[in-house]
């Protein structure tokens, strides 16, 4: 029993300490962020690494999720003779929820883990130390461009995900199940609100992007400089990132759509 209390105390203390370090990390990173705008070449390279290279997985996943939504939506709605609403339903689920959330989840696995591993290895091979010795600040040169790239790229990926999803829903509902094409689009356009649905979805994915960027860079910087340490750090990014995205999504949904 005493052991358990001791373990609990130790465990929560180390959690609190880690949260403190995360805060400090963010605090020291903030002033470095403007430099990333200045070094366009570095930023574009990271936009390519995190964004362009994530496109295939995001687009494929978006298409499939949209197709499933179209199929499921049709099956439910057809009983109420309102199968034209399948377009509205697909678009709303995508722009409000599934686009931001699923894109962010895929992104943590695809790009967040890669960032953590890259920075963890840079640390273990002393590249970060070498930069410091050459009077180049790793916060400005390595961390800031990556942070900003993630924040720029993820909202765009989420929108692309949703757009492809709508296309998938269209293909299934109109192309395969024979829903009327005009009704599919007109219903969707009249029921999906630009501000309420699309912009709120974008705000969600910006928040997710901040979380993913912060976690993947922090765990990379904290990785114990061994192969095991780097692999643990990568796992931590993916696990904490995914859970964090889902928790934040609940909070944001409650705030936005209530």
């Amino acid at each position: 029993m005493l052991r358990f209390v001791q373990w609990l105390g130790h465990h929560s203390l180390s959690r609190i300490r880690a949260a403190g370090r995360l805060g400090l990390f963010l605090f020291s990173l903030l002033p470095a962020l403007p430099y990333a705008l200045w070094r366009v070449a570095l930023l574009l390279k990271q936009v390519y690494n995190t964004g362009t290279l994530s496109l295939p997985i995001i687009m494929t996943a978006g298409l499939f999720v949209g197709m499933v939504l179209g199929l499921q939506g049709y099956n439910v709605l057809v009983d109420y003779n309102s199968e034209e609403a399948v377009g509205t339903m697909t678009a709303l689920s995508l722009f409000r929820e599934l686009g931001p959330v699923v894109a962010a989840l895929l992104f943590v696995g695809r790009a967040g883990s890669a960032l953590t591993a890259e920075i963890g290895l840079m640390r273990s091979t002393e590249q970060l130390s070498a930069l410091e010795m050459m009077a180049v600040d790793p916060l400005k040169f390595i961390f800031a461009p990556r942070f900003l790239a993630v924040v720029i790229v993820l909202p765009m990926l989420a929108l692309i995900f949703s757009a492809l999803g709508v296309l998938g829903g269209y293909l299934v509902a109109v192309g395969w199940l024979g829903v009327d094409e005009g009704a599919f689009w007109s219903q969707m356009i009249s029921h999906v609100d630009w501000y309420d649905d699309v912009i709120n979805g974008v705000i969600k994915s910006v928040v997710f992007a901040l979380l993913v960027a912060l976690l993947s860079l922090f765990h990379g910087a904290e990785a114990v400089p061994t192969s095991e340490g780097v692999s643990n750090a990568t796992t931590r990014t993916v696990v904490q990132g995914s859970l964090g995205i889902l928790a934040l999504d609940f909070i944001l949904t409650a705030l936005m759509f209530n």
Binding site: M122, E126, Q127, A130, D137
Partner: peptide, 22 residues
């Protein structure tokens, strides 16, 4: 930090591991 970085521009260091940017 600024003065330290200025000083380091006048310092060279060869790392035991090389530490090249990969």
């Amino acid at each position: 930090r600024r003065r330290l970085f200025a000083l380091r521009q006048r310092m060279g260091m060869l790392f035991q591991s090389g530490a090249l940017l990969t």
